[in-house]
Amino acid sequence: MELGAVIEQHIEVHKFRAGSIAAAALLALLLQSFLPRYIHRASLLELPLLITVYFGLSRRNPSTGLLLGTIIGLLQDSLGHSPLGLYGIAKTIVGFIASSIGTRLDTEHPLSRLSLTIGFFVLQQVVLTLTKRIILGLAQPFFSMQLLAAALINGVIAVGLFMLLDRLRRS
């Protein structure tokens, strides 16, 4: 217990400039709905997820992380045709787990960010698939090559995006 307490003491809780989280989330949602109209491959991107993961890992407060995930997910739902709550549930869980992991792991290393993002992407897909299957009654595959590719692409993009977002931190 003492060792754990020591490790937690060394993990920094980052703070961001006022409005930067909201601005980043809104921009991610805007791009998410805007880019695929012009770039077909952009539909593989999950920018709202990346924002949720990043701020969850950085803020390291599960309650804040899950509420941020909820808000971003519901907004994402409202911008699309999916029923409200589909992405909301997934991102709530992702935000909660990201915040919880952030209190225990060093999430600053690019490889760590890459693997965590891929993991969260897969987690989101699992939650989405379960929700679609159980609640919506839709036949949805758990795995496909396209999902794997999307997970890798989002992981790679997350490494760069997170470095950009690091600039929003208050020093």
Partner: peptide
Amino acid sequence: SRHRSLVLLAAVVAAQVLLLAVQIKR
């Protein structure tokens, strides 16, 4: 604190599940 966030998670997820259920028409 840890349990509080878990309870909050459960509440938020449950609320959204209900929200979904209200919308879905089988």
